[in-house]
Amino acid sequence: METTEIREQLQKAVTLSLDLAEKQIADLFLLLQKGFFVSACVGCTIHDFFIEQLGLSPEYIQSRIQGIFLDGKPADDLEIAIIRDGARLTLSGTMPGLVGIALRRGPLAVFRHSITHREAGDYGYSGEGFVQLKLLNLLMKDMGPELLRKGIYIQSTDLAEYLGNLPTGFWQECKSVSLDGAQVAPEMFQKGRWIPASEMAKFSVAPG
């Protein structure tokens, strides 16, 4: 999908918010592995995006984020690689296997030199935009709660399918659901009953 098309869809997104018990947030983590969108100030380095926009500490970045992929390519130098409008950034907290080690920053980066991200050109457009994020494995539980509280944009069909597959008990524990500002019954999201009215949804949680 083109950047302009995605931007249009984000502007038309329905808003869905769940009021949940804190422990229920973990049931939503797998939603984050396929990819979602966040509003961002683009035209900055990955390092600045992490620190200034995601609020991560340098220690956390160094110790917990083992795999960083910008538009599908391993990014080694976070202070050079630039996040442009519509970029896809995938983050992994664990990278096993020989191939996993090769994809990390480190001595085996040479093993995948032909697919390594190389920065060329200027910063491009700088200002309000969006970034597609994918959070994998350990980073789902680390970074997921805060991002879900702030709200993420996600393909409505993916969200509807995911919510529809959650067990009945999840919806029984859910305190309330707000769809485009109106309170609705949680049951309407079970077993694929919800048919989204737009391509994209802004999804957030409010643990009580």
Binding site: K73, T90, S92, T94, M95, P96
Partner: peptide
């Protein structure tokens, strides 16, 4: 942490992301 929680199949998402 990673291997105990997800096993070696944690690589599926990663390898699909990088095109391998």
């Amino acid at each position: 942490e990673g291997l105990p929680a997800y096993g070696t199949n944690v690589l599926t998402n990663i390898l699909s992301e990088v095109g391998g």
